[in-house]
Amino acid sequence: MSPHTQPRQRGMIGGTAATALAVERLGKIYGPGGPEAVEGTGPEFARSVSPSTGAVIGCWDVSFAVAPGEALGIIGESGSGKSTVMRCIAGDQSASAGSVNLAGVDRPGGTPADLLQLAPSDRRALRIDRLSVVYQDPAEGLDLRVSAGGNIAEPLTAAGWRHFGRIRQRAADLLSRTEVPLDRMDDPVLTYSGGMRQRVQLAKALANDPQVVLLDEPTTGLDASVAAGVLDLIRDLLEETGIAAVVVSHDFSVIEMLTRRCLVMHHGRVVEEGLTDQLLEDPQHPYSQRLVGAARG
């Protein structure tokens, strides 16, 4: 099945309440067994390993929708399944269950296409200009041996840009926007600091004005002051561009700064969701309470 892609629009799509990204009952099982392996796992059993098959339930029954211009947070400790959710949406991993829709990616006839059912080549094509990812490890999102400009040239040339001067100008514009000094633009990313690498990743992610950007622990591993600068930048960029974003983090301060709405994940399930400030003020689920408590120290 090949997706029939419509010209992209911002804001309202198709006259209905706009949804940039919709995830329905997403599940990922590592190891043997189908849905029956899920039984006996999750927060109420305090385990992710299937008692019947030994499979690890990466995530299960995860649903959410993100509106254009909205940033949604997913918070949880490591192993909670939040990165699995992100990788299944991005296509870095194959999902075991559920569906993912991206606005404007339709089947012939106009019904929304399920990304999970698309051919791998079609999924990769979406990554060029509709769905971008910023990884925790810059080496995953960038070719470190290539210059910052060259890394941005990649999605541009993939999208058909063939004019050297314009590619360079676009790369320079993006790098200025993400506050990378232009005199470093031609240096291999390998020579950059961690914070600078993340800024290059952001610039690359924005290269073709995607509808949705997925940010996986974008500031984890950076020094606090550097992380604060990158967070400021991300917040400004999201506000400026109106791109829908999913921010995955274990850190409430990141989620608090970037998102208005968030999900809490534990043992592969969503245990609570709501407005970020309310959730921080008054967490309902015991696990959320524990997380918030720890964050408030």
Binding site: G149, H163, F164, G165, R168, A172, L182, D183, M185, D186
Partner: peptide, 12 residues
């Protein structure tokens, strides 16, 4: 010498 970042088409 390498081309300057603000290189234009002709300089390239």
């Amino acid at each position: 010498a390498p081309v300057e970042p603000e290189a234009t088409a002709t300089e390239a």
